[in-house]
């Protein structure tokens, strides 16, 4: 009784009102928001997709656990960030990859990109994207074999094909329209996800549903994704056409490749994107610009991954450039 009496007058330091939100809660919510996309991937690409995603997640979590155990550090697998990284990496892989590709990718993503730099919050680059970049450069053949989606677990041999962006790059828009049978069909199939590509990037509807959930929960703001999509659409419209300016097809570029997955789920990563809103707009616009530059002029058909990684490098500089003025500091004082 005496104890409680003393406590009555105990005043702790601020903050006194705490939000319900924690890192773990946000990470788990983002993972949940990705589930529709993962489910659509599993639907179109079959059990192989589920296995790839599972290996990626398990290895990512296990790597973090073992590292922290071995280094005698506080265990942080409960915050869900390793799981989210594994999930994102899995969703960014083609369904047909052999088992060791998600394994190597997850180890690189967690160990080299995140843990060596000091763990969650200290990494310069988006771990899942570095994992994928590592894999793309290590296994260029295996990482660009895309399987034709076969709906509803139909058990047939996987047919390899090119992604819409690959066809667009190699053979042009006419061939792409032929493959899908008209532009309306093409947009419809891209919305549902019935096209070749990485497991989680194909279904636009599922990704948009997940993104809507994140917007509703206010885990992401419009700044990064919309400036990303906006600048990419502008570039696609101006320079995407054949011969003349202003004849490109922005919608095609929005829906193809990893544009939606990248802009809503990976460019918005808190750790590797600027903290200031104005800076976030510049960050997103830079991502969109670089993506379209690589898609239209570069050697790779898809550029979302490299665009985000390059902008990740610039994040500290952007943050510094848009640093808010300290209230009361003298005009023109040295910063």
């Amino acid at each position: 009784m005496d104890k409680n009496k003393d406590r009555q007058f105990l005043v702790s330091v601020s903050p006194h009102v705490r939000s319900e939100e924690t890192t773990a809660r946000i990470m788990w919510s983002v993972s949940a928001a990705l589930l529709p996309a993962a489910a659509m991937g599993a639907y179109f690409f079959g059990p192989k997709a589920v296995i790839t995603i599972s290996i990626s997640i398990i290895v990512a979590v296990l790597t973090e656990y073992l590292y922290q155990k071995g280094m005698k550090k506080k265990n942080t697998i409960g915050d869900g960030s390793a799981l989210l990284t594994g999930l994102l990496l899995g969703l960014n892989l083609p369904a047909s990859v052999p088992f060791y590709i998600p394994l190597v990718g997850a180890v690189v993503a967690i160990l080299i990109t995140k843990l060596i730099f000091g763990g969650l919050g200290y990494n310069i680059f988006n771990p899942a994207l570095v994992g994928r970049a590592f894999l793309l450069m290590s296994f260029p053949k295996l990482m660009t074999i895309w399987t034709q989606p076969t709906a509803a677990f139909v058990k047939i041999d996987a047919v390899t094909t090119a992604t819409p962006l690959g066809i667009l790059k190699e053979e042009g828009i006419q061939k792409l329209l032929e493959t899908f049978g008209g532009s309306f069909n093409m947009y419809m199939q891209m919305l549902s996800g019935n096209r070749a590509g990485s497991i989680g990037e194909t279904s636009a509807i599922a990704l948009l549903a997940g993104a809507a959930f994140l917007f509703y929960k206010r885990y992401i703001t419009w700044h990064v994704p919309f400036s990303f999509l906006g600048s990419a659409a502008l570039m696609a419209w101006i320079f995407g056409g054949k011969g003349a300016f202003f004849t490109g097809d922005p919608l095609l570029h929005m829906l193809s490749g990893g544009m939606l997955l990248g802009s809503f789920f990976m460019a918005t990563d808190y750790v590797t994107s600027p903290a200031v809103k104005k800076g976030q707009i510049l960050f997103g616009a830079g991502c969109g610009f670089l993506t379209m530059l690589i898609r239209l002029k570069g050697g790779y058909p898809e550029g979302v991954m490299f665009a985000i990684l390059i902008m990740n490098c610039l994040t500290p500089m952007i943050d510094r450039g848009f640093r808010t003025k300290v209230f009361g500091s003298a005009k023109g004082a040295a910063r």
């Binding site: 060791y100 190597v104 080299i112 590592f134 450069m137 290590s138 296994f139 260029p140």
Partner: peptide
């Protein structure tokens, strides 16, 4: 085994030196 091609590319050089 399937080699990690990145390690003989310049990017892999930076990784190896750093680690």
């Amino acid at each position: 085994a399937k080699p990690l091609l990145i390690m003989v590319l310049p990017a892999g050089g930076f990784l190896a030196v750093g680690i």
